[in-house]
Design a protein around this nucleic acid. Sequence first.
RNA 1: GCCGGAGUGGCGGAAUUGGUAGACGCACGGGACUUAAAAUCCCGAGGGCCGAAAGGCCCGUGCCGGUUCGAUUCCGGCCUCCGGCACCA
Length: 822
Amino acid sequence: MSEKFNPAEIDGKWQRRWDDRKVAYVDTASPGEKFYMLNMFPYPSGSRLHVGHGRNYILGDALYRRERMGGRVSFNPMGWDAFGLPAENAAIASGVHPREYTMANIARMKEQLRSLGLLYDWSKELASCDPRYYKWNQWLFLRMWERGLAYRKTAPVNWCPGCRTVLANEQVVDGRCDRSDDPVEIRDLTQWFFRITDYADRLLAGLEGLEWPDRVKTMQRNWIGRSEGAEILFRVPALAEPVAVFTTRPDTLFGATFLALAPEHPAASALAAKSPRRDEILAFIERVRRESRLEREAEGAQKQGLDAGFAAINPATREEIPIWLANFVLPEYGTGAIMGVPAHDQRDFEFARKVGAEIRPVYRTAEKELDPAAMTQAETHIGYLYRSGDWDGTPAGPEAIRKAVAWVEAKGVGQGKVGYRLRDWLISRQRYWGTPIPAIHCEACGVVPVPDKDLPVLLPEDVAFRGAEGNPLEKSEAFVRVNCPRCGRPARRETDTMDTFVDSSWYYLRFLNPDDAAKMVDPARVAHWMPVDQYVGGIEHAILHLLYARFICRVLKDMGLVSVEEPFARLFNQGMITRLNPTTGKVEKMSKSRGNTVSPDELIARYGADTIRLYTLFIGPPEKESEWSEEGVVGAWRFLNRVHELCGRVAGTAPAAKTSDTPLARLEHRTIQRVTADAARFHFHTAIAALMEFQRGIAEALDDGQETPAAARRAAETLIKLLHPIAPHLTEEWWERFGHETLLLETRWPEFDPELATTPRVTLVIQVNGKVRGKLDVERGAGEQEALSLARCDERIRPWLEGKEVARAVFVPDRLLNLVVH
RNA sequence: GCCGGAGUGGCGGAAUUGGUAGACGCACGGGACUUAAAAUCCCGAGGGCCGAAAGGCCCGUGCCGGUUCGAUUCCGGCCUCCGGCACCA
């Protein structure tokens, strides 16, 4: 009957036209109300995109087109997070250079994005593996080094044997490498760090004002892990220096019956040196250090301890307490030493029970005292203090803690302190495909920064990958051999490269001046365009990328280059797309490794980009995970064809000039209202439902002869405008066939008349005692008296009122009348 | 253990501030068109009970209770699932 539309023809035609006219180009120096839309820039992976990947780009493009039609100068750039291990691993496996591999992937991915009708300002395209980009990583590194924010230290760090590199804490998940899944080992290595801990409080405070999903903010809060407490000094007669412990419960100080050191603590080896059991102690230290993080932090891991044979003095009781070395004390948190209060801390309790340390309660209730021998667990929050000198009688809580902090400060044995779980960001990697760290090791001068004039430090391209062990940079003599910039004598270049999360921590700024050879960021453009108004990307970056970007943005602000603390005002995390896996019979995340992916290419070939876009947006609320269904795609295809057919029916008529008060006009205005509101909260699935009703309404009005073709044509033009962000190709095509010379994308979003967005008559629900007993069709604005008399006369209502007395009537205008009867 | 989120037909989901629960779509059933099929269009449908039918009644948004004329929505107590953190002192 009706011709289907031909997506192959229409898609290509409009994609070419958008390209030719450079419709997405934005002069970032130009004024005007701005909207900065940004999708997290992708890693150009070797595998093709599947429809699960498409969701966040499609959503981003729909938002971009919608905002743009709203009249704001909208910027939607795209780039490539192009450094990283997979390219290097591919090089090792196949011999093809990471650059060649990456560039081929970029070209292919770009074509895939284009085939979905996604509009980006490609004139701003950047790739982090481009020396014009990574030069500024190096420049930033040097500035941070000058400010003491980049530094080198020897520390126990996470080593992934599979990736043959160190990892940041954020990249270790359950003791395993988040990329290769290998168990992570702890090694003592000298590495480069960024001092993110200096920004812990600011990173925490900034979360308050962000329009981000609560779960992401919570995850960041937990990761920063702020806790208030005190640092308390314990004198150790055998050592010159006292040992400091960090505790959140200084109020339990009188109950501290032992001191426990992480085996990595300097005092541990110092004591070993003085001990007759030196070898035994050193062996214990060595054994714990060799445990992987996985073993040491595993759930239910056994607490192990060794009595060092020395005493410390509890500053409150002045009694001698034993010093233990314990595997559950973590070297990186607090001071690496704790005071053990077994009566009131569960971990200390378990340890005390295991090694036989004293359990001394300092809290009791009025009714009873705790009996150490009978306790089965620590009591962390009970009663009031006793056996605690002047603090006796203070109830457990903040007051007790305040008293204790004041006391240790007055006695000079400690001070109030805030502890963080957050550790400094380890940024060096022992791999090739990343930004070279601009440092030079000179025997005479030490570690010397590369002078700015020598930037960028280029990655050497002629290195061998196949069969190579370790970092190929180390074997590149041309790269390593350099003269010291300070003394001029032969020196060695640093061969570590930067974590790729350095690249992604500031790329959103570089889109504003990607070709600027003179400076990293352009403060004037940043002042106009930042923050990003809408950031869209996956939840997997909740901590890593988003925390680092917030950190670096603050560093740049402190350098006077950036005007904002927070780079991303609003964040949206799209939900995963899942699909029934035919092999396992389970609904799983769509992924290549699970073998349940759907390729957009075949679907585009069959149904066109608009169908895929529409279905992807229709599948469910975008923040939730949604299951892909092959059959569902057909529904989207049918709808677009109904739109196509409708447009064909009205194309021959000129549109009616004005909206008059007709049912169709009212439907039109109500649809504009609904779609506008739904799009504002990204709920395109309900917007599409409204558009489906609208399409049907227009078609029916035309079929019934209720409306003139001119009025239907008018309505159809509104329909395709509202549909444009979702299905841009078909709607542009009809806009042109309707005789318009402008692009639909460049028209204004329709506005609705609030008066017309309502209906003149409404259904008034009649309830009796809260149950629906009838419905009345009444004029909008009908009064209570009128409704009441209509209800009393209604045949369906009357039986429910007979012989009863209406005690009360609840009337909600235009909605319901509830009669309460007895 | 702590934090965050979710639970509605056969399925995806809707119901913006408490006011007709199930919009829209998929799948399904029936019909129209067709020689036939595909495609398309129209109609139907939460469950149970009564009725020849028109229609009517009861139940129903994870469970139990509360507030209210009225609760998917608010409050209290649970259950289940998903995600994050967790020997962080």
